[in-house]
Design a protein around this nucleic acid. Structure first.
Length: 295
DNA sequence: AGAATTACCTGGCAGC
DNA sequence: TGCTGCCAGGTAATTC
């Protein structure tokens, strides 16, 4: 599920119940995910108010009033959902505007935040992750920027910071294929396999082309930077659209509503030229592109 | 140093 | 219907 747009969708879904809420209790149903949970996590967070829910690249940042932060990464299969507390009546549940998806598999409900929201009252925010590639790290006051998971991250592909000249500078002299360069979180942070394929297709660039090539052509660099920004922005809007009617934490719905130009469309006609979409493997991962109209 | 490969897990699906 | 093999959007560790 989670590339940047999905994490942003999750952030927006959780924000209403979590921001300003107090952590009543944190329940860990196992000792670890990808990494061991921080020690005494419940003791550290119990009674603390969540002051904001942020995001950096694909990381969800839960910031507390004492300045500490939880860094949450969803890995490949992580998701959050909101559930009503037992004390919340069916009537209130029906009227609070939230959508409460059932747990697809309760055995993978690894973390439960019991929160008391000033607006919605008691709710459970539940982290589910079948593959357990996700992780939860605790970061002390003021250490977020220097945290090992965050300090080497490149620029966000949101807003206007990713311009043609900026992209050209990042890719200058790089011999690696565009696919690898765009996936490199130290250059641009937040792109994953899907949106890299989509942005390259949109620009008419082959994923096999050397990144340094694009750096030497200001127009190409501008076009690629624009495509990346557009693809990400549109995906966030699509994720958000599933939140319009029922605010929900799980970004899955928005994600699957997306119709991709090339991703997972091997053999199907290119939406630009009609030639069959190709699938190749780069660095052990699938790349989808149109060999006929990308170069 | 930088690039490529492997490891970490479970679930779903195609093919037999 | 079960079994096997393969594939999956992530980062980190290891090897080259």
């Amino acid at each position: 599920m989670p590339e940047l747009p999905e994490v942003e969708t999750v952030r927006r879904g959780l924000q209403p119940v979590m921001e300003g809420a107090v952590v009543e209790k944190l329940v860990l149903n196992r000792p670890d995910l990808r990494f061991p949970f921080p020690e005494n996590l419940n003791d550290r967070l119990q009674g603390q108010k969540i002051v904001s829910l942020g995001r950096r690249a694909k990381y969800l940042l839960i910031e507390f009033e004492d300045g500490a932060s939880l860094i949450s990464h969803l890995g490949m299969s992580g998701s959050y959902r909101i559930e009503p507390d037992l004390r919340v009546s069916a009537q209130e549940q029906a009227e609070d505007g939230f959508h409460y998806p059932r747990s697809k598999n309760p055995t993978h409900d690894h973390v439960v935040f019991h929160v008391q929201s000033p607006v919605y009252g008691s709710r459970q925010v539940i982290y589910n992750d079948p593959r357990r590639f996700g992780f939860l790290l605790l970061c002390g006051t003021g250490e977020l920027a220097e945290h090992p998971s965050l300090k080497d991250l490149g620029i966000e592909p949101t807003g206007n910071s990713l311009s043609g000249p900026v992209l050209a500078e990042l890719f200058k002299g790089k011999k690696v294929p565009l696919k690898a360069a765009l996936l490199d979180q130290r250059l641009i942070a937040g792109l994953g396999n899907i949106y890299v394929c989509e942005a390259l297709w949109r620009t008419g660039l082959s994923p096999l082309r050397a990144a340094g090539d694009v750096a030497q052509d200001p127009q190409l660099a501008e076009a690629l930077a624009t495509s990346v920004r557009e693809v990400i922005a549109e995906a966030i809007v699509a994720g958000g659209s599933s939140l319009r009617d029922h605010r929900q934490a799980d970004g899955t719905l928005g994600y699957f509503q997306h119709s991709f130009a090339v991703y997972d469309r091997e053999g199907e006609p290119c939406r630009r030229c009609g030639a069959p979409v190709q699938r190749i493997v780069q660095n052990g991962r699938s790349t989808f592109f149109c060999a006929a109209c990308s170069s």
